[in-house]
Amino acid sequence: MKQIFFIFLILSGYNSLAGSDPSLQITNAWIQEGPPNARVLAGFMDINNHTTQGIIIESATSDSFKRIEFHQTINENGMARMRKQDKLMIKSGASLKLKHGGYHLMLIQPKKHLKEGDKIDILFKLSTSTTQLISLTVKKPTDSQQGHQHHH
């Protein structure tokens, strides 16, 4: 039972808390599974900054992708527009949800076909001169993750 709980902690991404300090609290970090020939994927997570200072995520890198960019989907006037963000800023005490139809990680050129259940590490470079390793789980979306309307 203890082992199961331990595994749950790892899966939940709480292990990142044990890393360098100050750091962000990351939960629900996941990558949406895509077709085998998808050239881009999207990564999502909930980011909380419980520290006393604002933290900027300056870049993200991973061995599993050629490049990672921060993007924001903007739905306006019936158009879906994608805008690149150079950095993500999370103020002290604030949170940022990376989710469908909003901010997300754009994962460019996966090195292999990622399948449901795979674990992928992504390294955030933070403005606090530290790095933070995030573990993301590859998943197929559930209806609630697709239901944009519930959040509006």
Partner: peptide
């Protein structure tokens, strides 16, 4: 198909 967010979401729908 190079669309990261909106198109995969719509195809899942």
């Amino acid at each position: 198909t190079n669309c990261p967010d909106v198109c995969p979401a719509t195809l899942f729908q």
